[in-house]
Design a protein around this nucleic acid. Structure first.
Length: 405
RNA sequence: GUGGGAUUAGCUCAGUUGGUUAGAGCACUGGUUUGUGGUGCCGGGUGUCGCGGGUUCGAAUCCCGUAUCCCACCCCA
């Protein structure tokens, strides 16, 4: 019979990986809560229309790169490819846009994209993200960047921060036209990918990997030099806040977003240590998305980080010995041992072995289990009613009465 | 979707121009030094050589297909 394996690009997370995984979630959760964010859980499955509308019909994304299917009720549904759309939908559905005020959410969970897998790029992967609603001020953008920085610092992950401004309705469309005009002038020389981008998503020519194209675009207009007053003002403020808080960054005029609802602040944290899929966190302002999804216009900003990519970069804190190991030396003491184990488990981590073994074997087990305290029960202990408990860290021993242990 | 590399023990990997019975380290496991630790010693599974075909007297080795992983591109919400 053929062995059943997990689907392509879908991994199990266990043992060491799981420890790293939960360690990341714990740290990120703690930091997000310090910034005043609250957990939100949204469904893994949503109506396809939600993503169609938020992402737009433009590129390959819809249909080609989403897990889309018709369910038994004939609904066109989709496994969520990202977290923002669902959170925004929930925000609108709970009428928080009408209620007014400030709402800050964080989430983490599985996302699904039907792509060809690479390292740090799976079909089922996990993201941690936050979304903030109701704040127009660029200070929120800045504090979001600082939040990511805090998380990465606590995990001892090195990074580079890149920022850019995407402009808004006033300046972006005009800039796009100018860029298209510029690129059309050298259309004969650009690569075939860029020719296609010119039609589908012109801004994306800016981060083309072809060296020849980059050479051609060297003198292309830069959005950063064509921002309207409001956008420029905010971008300057952002830089100032980051400077004031000792956050290093570089301005990457080629850092772009494909989708229409993004505006103003865009940022990305990248690592040198994980190959071409180097972005470990990305975010920005999306003041238009709530309205796109039929809510009342609400300014918003958020970010998401890919947990699998971060996992290989996390430096775990040193493991400490923890809990007890209790072993039986003779057949007749096994029952007593198991009683003590159960009693102790009300308050501590306890490992044991169901077989009577000699001292060496037990202490080996204790060591493997990374126990902090070690005790053994044999005929001697049965007679005296006393047991020795050894601290495996500092090698001291203490004697307890069995009843009081 | 496009191009390239890989797949042998639980893990990391050897494996001769195709030749008889398939290798190391670690891990695992049994015994043992008869009560104080990451040991020592003796022994042991370590295996459909990714899967399916083909060539051959004979395939881990050569050929074709396929799956998965890795690398780069596309895309990146």
């Amino acid at each position: 019979m053929k062995m059943i394996k997990s689907l392509r690009g879908m991994n199990d997370i266990l043992s060491e990986d799981y420890e790293r995984f939960t360690y990341f979630i714990d740290v990120a959760t703690k930091v997000a809560q310090r910034y005043g964010f609250h957990f939100i859980e949204t469904p893994l499955l949503e109506e396809t229309a939600l993503f169609k509308r938020s992402v737009g019909e433009s590129s390959d994304i819809v249909g080609k790169e989403m897990y889309q299917f018709t369910d038994k009720g004939e609904n066109d549904v989709c496994l969520r490819p990202e977290g923002t759309a669902g959170v925004v939908r929930a925000f609108i559905q709970k009428k928080l846009d009408r209620a007014g005020g400030i709402y800050r959410f964080f989430y983490h969970g599985a996302m699904f994209r039907y792509e060809r897998p690479q390292k740090g790029r799976l079909r089922q992967f996990h993201q941690f993200g936050v979304e903030s609603f109701g704040i127009e001020s660029v200070y929120e953008d800045a504090s979001m960047i600082m939040m990511v920085s805090d998380i990465l610092n606590e995990l001892s992950i090195g990074y580079k921060l890149q920022i850019n401004s995407l402009g808004d309705n006033n300046c972006m469309p005009q800039y796009r036209d100018n860029l298209v005009k510029f690129v059309k002038n050298c259309e004969d020389e650009i690569c075939s990918d860029c020719k296609r981008r010119l039609e589908t998503n012109p801004i994306r020519v800016l981060d083309c990997k072809n060296e020849k194209c980059q050479e051609l675009y060297k003198d292309a207009p830069k959005l950063i030099n064509n921002l309207c007053d409001n956008c420029e003002d905010d971008f300057n403020k952002l830089k100032k806040i980051l400077d004031n808080n000792g956050i290093n960054y570089e301005i990457d005029t080629n850092l772009v977003r494909g989708l229409d609802y993004y505006s103003k602040t865009a940022f990305e944290f990248v690592s040198d240590n994980i190959g071409s899929q180097s972005a470990i966190a990305g975010g920005g302002r999306y003041d238009r998305l709530v309205e796109f999804l039929d809510g009342k216009a609400t300014p918003a900003v958020g970010f998401a980080m890919g947990i699998e990519r971060l996992m290989e970069l996390i430096k775990m804190p040193e493991k400490k010995r923890d809990g007890y190991y209790i072993g039986a030396m003779d057949e007749e003491t096994i029952e007593l041992v198991l009683n003590l184990v159960q009693k102790k488990r009300k308050t501590h981590k306890v490992t044991t072995d169901y077989k009577a073994k000699n001292f060496k074997n037990h202490i080996k087990n204790a060591d493997k289990a990374n126990a902090k305290y070690f005790c053994m029960i044999g005929s001697n202990e049965l007679e005296s009613g006393e047991i020795k408990v050894k601290n495996l860290e500092d090698k001291t021993e203490e004697i307890f009465k069995v009843k009081e242990f």
